[in-house]
Design a protein around this nucleic acid. Structure first.
Lengths: 331, 331
DNA sequence: TTGCCTATTGAAAACGTTTTAATTTTGTAG
DNA sequence: CTACAAAATTAAAACGTTTTCAATAGGCAA
């Protein structure tokens, strides 16, 4: 029913081997054969079945990027970087979402076990690090935008601890001493690292850590709103708030603006990620920028390199971040 | 080197056929065999190679969602709907991005021709409708969030013309008679439809159409900012602005707020999509809400149904939209 | 002419599954 | 016991490619 390489061979009066060679641009084939095959392909409207090819070659030239959801808009830059790197070596990047469900993440990793893709990049994995680490011994897996506490898997990320330190220190440098922190209930390594950076900055400035000033929630704007509300209802209010994501910060600032708090003066805000909306929302948000595109590009380059070797690179690469200063810190 | 079904068969002392049947839960196999096979699978850490399976079965149980980029955050709801529908029939949804390049869109459709996926959903296609329509005759393709001017392909969308009409009419109902329109340079069908709705609303209210009031740009916030600036520098300024996306509206409102224009009074704004940030930005944006999740769910349900039949459904389904009224229209 | 090397070609094996068709085993009724 | 149906099993074919290996054709030197 479907047109196969056999049909093309028949139409072009050559063997299937020759057709295959023409299709793959092998050099040891006569000009006539090339012409005949191409004509036949054209006439029949043939396109090769990759299932056959992939099976025979035992490779798919596809890499799967596994993410929680596409909602985090800054993923788009990461993915762009990944695609650009993949393109160079003829790979395609496919994306699948886990909805932050570890079980579904495992299901998607099944595409790797079952050879439906050649490699996987986990963006913000939810599975425990032991599991991932074990799998990475048998399969080509890399992690991006995160790192594992187990240190034997290819990671491309930023130094989140340092970034948390930098942001918090900046607020301290602005004379603030009661700095709130809004972070996530979910103990992702990046959140933990950012919190640790926050702590270290306090310690470095001899400010005692006050657990009251930490609010735990989700990754969304509502968390920011509720967090800000809670922190501002403390007897001893904060004079600055660092959040581990811009989305949270925007929600938090939203609360402040609506309650007549002068952002950038009474209360400073520092976010994380530099999402597109962070400079649309007024007052504009100061934030930590991470090199999204570059992280994506780098992780795929390294992963593809790993596919070609038996001694995979298991390093953790930390790319440089930077602080973007805007109105929310009074800049 | 890799563990195959043969190894399992040997270890379990049965034939590969039996192993296959156990793995696929076929009923005509003895309890002992099931035990033996499962034990062997466990011991060897075997997982089936889908390339072999897919080739033999001529199906992959995978559907590819092709989008421009993941930046448009409201896609995430659509994709969630798609996944939920896919899950019911044991399909996986994979996502690939075209970066709005028709050529790359065609490349990705290659996964369909080459049988790497069973079907494709195009979210906002960039290829011309003739091409897509032709392809849909040979392959299982559906369109979501858009429609084609050629009407012979499965589409799930909203009535964008009607939505444009509704939004504009609402502004007119608020006493506005100079209504600006910010839309896209790119002539996507949805943009065109929304514009047509805008026109029809003007006509229905006996307001002459003024081409000066239309600004063409991109899908981003910058376009909104520039568009608003340009429209407000007219001798005869608008008293309301309808944009074909929230992102644009937010950029536009941003300009207005910064230039001391009282949004919701001097100037009304109406957006489109009801993205998450549209109620975070103050003043809050009135907008057209489309049923994202439902569109995604529906399109995949219909597509899967089409895969099972020789007489595919080529209808266009228009799901209901609604108006969300907030501060930007003085509500 | 003969022999040999090179360039091109094709037949067949291989990739790892599922499924068909044939065979063996089991169970049951007579 | 025997006969026969039903159940379980297997060998082998099939899916559509790529690749190996052997074979053929062509060119050229001797």
């Amino acid at each position: 029913m479907n047109i196969t390489i056999k049909d093309v061979a028949k139409a072009a009066n050559v063997s299937v081997a020759t057709v295959s060679r023409v299709l793959n641009n092998k050099n040891n084939v006569s000009e006539e054969a090339v012409q005949a095959v191409n004509r036949a392909v054209e006439e029949l409207g043939y396109s090769p079945n990759f299932l056959g090819r992939d099976l025979r070659k035992s490779e798919t030239k596809r890499i799967l990027a596994i993410i929680g959801s596409t909602e985090q808009s800054f993923y788009s830059d990461v993915l762009r970087g990944m695609q650009d790197a993949a393109y160079v070596d003829g790979y395609d990047i496919l994306i699948a979402t886990t909805r932050n469900d570890p079980e579904h993440e495992m299901h998607l990793l099944g595409m790797l076990f079952s050879r439906a893709v050649d490699g996987v990049v986990l963006l913000a994995p939810k599975l425990d690090s032991k599991t991932i680490s074990d799998l990475s011994k048998r399969y080509r897996i890399a992690i991006c935008l995160e790192r594992l506490d187990i240190n034997d898997i290819l990671c491309v990320t930023i130094d989140n601890e340092r970034a948390g330190f930098d942001a918090t220190s900046y607020l301290i440098g602005k004379g603030r001493r009661r700095i709130g922190l809004i972070t996530t209930e979910i103990r992702s390594q990046s959140s933990v690292d950012r919190e640790n950076g926050y702590m270290r900055a306090l310690k470095a400035a001899n400010i005692p850590f006050d657990p009251e000033l930490v609010y735990y929630g989700d990754y969304d704007a509502d968390t920011g709103t509720r967090g800000c509300e809670e922190l501002m209802s403390l007897a001893n209010k904060p004079d600055a708030i660092f959040s581990i994501s811009d989305t949270i910060s925007i929600g938090a600032m939203n609360y402040a603006v609506q309650h007549g708090i002068t952002v950038g003066k009474d209360l400073l805000f520092f976010g994380f990620d530099n999402i597109a909306y962070s400079h649309m929302f007024i007052p504009r948000l100061s934030t930590v920028e991470q090199p999204c595109y570059l992280q994506g590009k780098t992780v795929v380059e390294k992963l593809i390199a790993n596919m070609k070797t038996d001694e995979p690179d298991k390093s953790t690469y930390m790319l440089p971040h930077s602080l973007i200063l805007r109105e929310s810190t009074g800049d």
